Simulated assay, not measured.
Amino acid sequence: METLDFGTAGAALTSVVAGVREDALDRPTPCTDWSVRELLAHVDGLLLAFRAAADKDLGPLTDTDPSRQALVLDEGWRERIPERVDALVRAWSAPEAWTGTTRAGGLELPAEVAGLVALDEVTLHGWDLARATGQEHRVDEATTKVVLGFATQTAEEQSPIFGPRVPVPDDASDFDRALGLAGRDPAWARP
Rank of each mutant, 00 (worst) to 15 (best):
G7S: 15
L25F: 01
D171A: 14
I161C: 02
A151W: 00
T8H: 13
D140N: 13
A18L: 02
S15T: 15
V117F: 04
R90G: 01
G180C: 04
W77G: 12
Q135M: 06
R131I: 00
M1N: 07
H125L: 04
T29K: 03
D57Y: 01
V72D: 15
R37K: 11
T8L: 06
S35Y: 05
A12G: 14
E96G: 01
V168C: 07
A52Q: 11
S67Q: 10
H42S: 06
V146A: 12
L4R: 15
R84Y: 08
V168R: 08
P164W: 12
Q69H: 09
I161W: 02
D128S: 11
L179K: 07
E79V: 12
A41Y: 10
E2Y: 10
D86E: 15
L47M: 04
H42L: 03
L73T: 05
L48F: 03
E75G: 07
A87S: 12
W127M: 08
G7Y: 00
T133L: 06
W92I: 08
V146D: 03
S15L: 08
A111H: 11
G19E: 14
L107Y: 11
V168K: 08
D5R: 14
V168M: 12
P82V: 07
D86F: 00
E2K: 13
V139E: 10
P110L: 07
V139N: 05
T133E: 06
P191A: 14
E157I: 02
A172L: 02
A87N: 08
A187D: 12
P191V: 09
T133P: 03
A172G: 03
Q135A: 04
F175D: 09
A178C: 05
P28I: 14
T64S: 06
L116P: 00
D120Q: 10
A12K: 03
V113N: 02
L71W: 13
L58N: 13
V146N: 02
W77Q: 11
A97W: 06
L73V: 08
H42A: 04
I81P: 02
R80Y: 09
A118F: 02
D185Y: 04
F50G: 01
G126D: 02
T133R: 11
E108M: 04
A9C: 07
L107M: 13
A24C: 07
T102I: 00
E157K: 10
R80G: 10
A187F: 02
V16Q: 15
P191L: 09
P110V: 05
P66H: 06
V36S: 09
A11S: 05
G7R: 07
R138H: 14
D171W: 03
E157L: 05
P164Y: 06
K145G: 14
V122T: 09
